[in-house]
Simulated assay, not measured.
Amino acid sequence: MIVKKRYGRETGREYALRVLKENIVMLELEPGSRISENELASEIGVSRTPIREALIELSKSKIVKIYPQKGSYVSLIDWELVEEALFMRLTLEKAVVRLACQGIEEEKIQELEKNVKLQKFYIDNNEAGELLELDNQFHKELFAITNKIHIYRLMSVMMLHFDRLRTLRTKAVDQRYVIEDHLKILEAIRNKRPLEGEQVMERHLTRYIIDEKIVKEKYPQYFEIVEE
């Protein structure tokens, strides 16, 4: 289990929530697995109360299921929720790219290019966790640059469903396309080509559709069974 250092002013609930989110997204807590409050409290270093509060919060976005008298479980990946999360992200990120194409400082673009170079390093070294973190930072910075960071934070709650799929794809599909897509997005922003930027962003975010069959065949146990 991944347990990173607690921030100085972070409450027990906030810390437990952050740790749980990361472990669910990175599949350290696998879809369908039972969650032990006692074990989590021991590993994270907090009491059961903040663990329980964090689980209740996660259940609101359906990433965790709580059954009275039975316990809590990590939800299986629900393809409908993945698609809803993608719809929201696609709508917002295309709008953000369009805003960025109106003009941002060259220094900001160069900082994002440094991020992409680091992504290449982690792809070459098969470090999926670091790659996903840098990928998230890249997109988060686009929201920050266009003064829409609060929207990003709201979006991130629903994105847990999509992010688990992203983790699976790093294990099943070559991720080098990420570098190419990000560089093309930056090229469109630098040259102030909003239509081109939106098209690249849409292609970038919808690649999961192409990879759906590969991922489901490799990890069928992680997905909700859809009744015909």
Rank of each mutant, 00 (worst) to 15 (best):
I2F: 12
I2G: 00
V3H: 10
V3R: 01
K5M: 11
G8I: 06
R13Y: 13
E14N: 02
A16R: 05
R18L: 08
V19C: 15
N23R: 12
I24K: 11
V25R: 14
L27R: 08
E28A: 15
E30H: 06
P31E: 05
P31F: 03
S36D: 15
E37K: 15
N38L: 12
E39G: 08
E39V: 09
A41L: 10
G45P: 00
V46H: 11
S47A: 09
S47G: 11
P50I: 09
P50D: 06
I56Q: 13
S59P: 00
K62G: 03
I63G: 01
I63Y: 01
Y67Q: 13
Q69K: 14
S72R: 04
S72Q: 07
Y73K: 09
E80Q: 03
E83K: 15
E84R: 13
F87D: 04
M88D: 03
L90Y: 08
L90V: 07
K94P: 01
A100I: 02
A100W: 05
C101K: 14
G103R: 07
K108S: 15
Q110W: 01
E113H: 10
E113T: 10
E113A: 12
K117F: 04
L118P: 00
Y122G: 12
N125S: 06
N125L: 12
N126F: 01
N126Q: 12
L132C: 02
D135P: 00
E141W: 02
F143M: 06
A144G: 04
N147L: 14
N147S: 11
N147T: 06
K148Y: 05
H150F: 13
Y152C: 12
R153G: 07
S156C: 03
V157N: 05
L160M: 15
F162S: 00
D163E: 14
L165E: 10
L165R: 10
T170E: 09
V173F: 08
V173G: 02
D174A: 09
Y177K: 02
E180W: 10
D181R: 14
D181P: 01
H182M: 02
L183G: 04
K192Q: 04
R193A: 14
P194E: 08
P194A: 14
G197W: 13
Q199Y: 08
Q199D: 02
V200N: 09
L205N: 09
I210S: 06
D211R: 00
K213Q: 03
I214K: 03
I214Q: 04
V215E: 01
K216N: 05
P220T: 01
